[in-house]
C-alpha cells in the first residue's frame, strides 16, 4: 500500500516525540502504567481485592484495566485531535487525512503492547502465569484500535467544527471510565448497575483481554461478539461520517 511508509513514520513520530526531551525516553511507556497501577493498588486493594471471585488476582486485574483504558482514552483523544493539529499539512499537501487518525490509533496499539511487558511481570509477582491464549490479545488490541480509529475519525470532524466539544468529550470519557470495571469487580454493583456496565463495550474488551492474558476473568461469548460488532460498527460508521463531512470541514481548517 502506497501510504504504508507514511503511516510507519507517523506512528514512530507519535511514539517518540512525546518523550523526546526526557532522560529515559520511551521507557516512560513502560513506567507510566506501572506507576498509575501502584497508586491505584494502594487505594483500592483494601476495598476490592477480597471481593474478586476466587482464581482472580487483584494486581494484574487492575493493571490490565488501566492499560486498556489508557489505550482507549489517549488513543481516542490523540486520534480525534490529530486531524486538527495537522491542519497545516492538510491544507497544503494532499494526504488522505484519515491516515493521521489511524496512525494515532496504531501508536496507541503499540503502547498497549509495550505496556504488556510490565503487566506480565505483575502477573508473575502475584503468582499467576501467562495463559496459552496469550496470542489472542492481538485480536483484542486490533479490535480496540478499530474502535478508537472509528470514534476518532467521527470526533475529529466534530472537534474542528465545534471548539467546545473537547470538554464535553473529556467528561464523557471520565464517566465511561467509571462504568468500566477497571478497579472494581462487576459483582460489587447492584443488578441495574451491572447491566449498565455490561452495556459499555469496553467492559467486554477488558474481560476478554484479562482472560486472554492470564485467565484472570471469565468472558462469555457475548463479550466476544460485542467486541467484534462494536469495533466493526465504529470503524465503518466513523469512516463514512468522516468521508461525508470532510469536504466541507477542510475549508474550516
Amino acid at each position: 500500500m502506497k501510504y504504508a511508509q507514511l503511516i510507519r513514520l507517523l506512528v514512530a513520530r507519535d511514539l517518540t516525540i512525546r518523550y523526546k526531551r526526557s532522560v529515559i525516553g520511551i521507557g516512560w511507556t513502560l513506567l507510566n502504567p506501572m506507576l498509575t497501577s501502584i497508586v491505584m493498588w494502594f487505594v483500592f486493594s483494601f476495598v476490592f481485592a477480597s471481593r474478586l471471585p476466587s482464581g482472580q488476582q487483584f494486581a494484574p486485574y487492575l493493571m490490565a484495566g488501566i492499560l486498556l483504558n489508557t489505550f482507549f482514552n489517549q488513543g481516542l483523544m490523540l486520534s480525534a485531535e490529530s486531524i486538527a493539529s495537522n491542519g497545516g499539512v492538510l491544507t497544503k499537501i494532499y494526504v488522505p487525512p484519515q491516515i493521521f487518525a489511524i496512525s494515532s490509533a496504531l501508536a496507541g496499539l503499540v503502547n498497549f503492547f509495550i505496556g504488556m511487558i510490565p503487566l506480565a511481570v505483575v502477573c508473575f509477582l502475584s503468582g499467576q502465569s501467562l495463559a496459552w491464549s496469550l496470542p489472542l490479545v492481538l485480536i483484542v488490541g486490533v479490535c480496540l484500535a478499530f474502535l478508537v480509529a472509528g470514534l476518532g475519525l467521527a470526533l475529529s470532524i466534530v472537534f474542528i467544527r465545534f471548539d467546545d466539544t473537547r470538554n464535553i468529550v473529556n467528561v464523557l470519557l471520565m464517566i465511561l471510565m467509571y462504568l468500566t470495571p477497571i478497579f472494581y469487580p462487576i459483582s460489587v454493583m447492584n443488578p441495574t448497575m451491572q447491566h449498565i456496565i455490561r452495556l459499555n463495550p469496553l467492559t467486554s474488551y477488558l474481560e476478554v483481554f484479562r482472560w486472554a492474558f492470564s485467565n484472570n476473568a471469565f468472558p462469555t461469548w457475548h463479550n466476544w461478539a460485542y467486541m467484534f460488532i462494536t469495533a466493526a460498527c465504529s470503524f465503518i460508521l466513523g469512516a463514512s461520517v468522516f468521508k461525508k463531512f470532510w469536504p466541507r470541514t477542510v475549508a474550516m481548517l
Binding site: R13, I17, K20, R21, N86, G88, V89, K92, I93, Y94
Partner: peptide
C-alpha cells in the same frame, strides 16, 4: 506527481 510549493516546510516538527 504534484510538488506543491505552498508555504514550504508544512509538517516540519521542531523536536525532530
Amino acid at each position: 506527481s504534484i510538488a506543491p510549493m505552498i508555504e514550504l516546510g508544512a509538517g516540519f516538527h521542531p523536536e525532530m
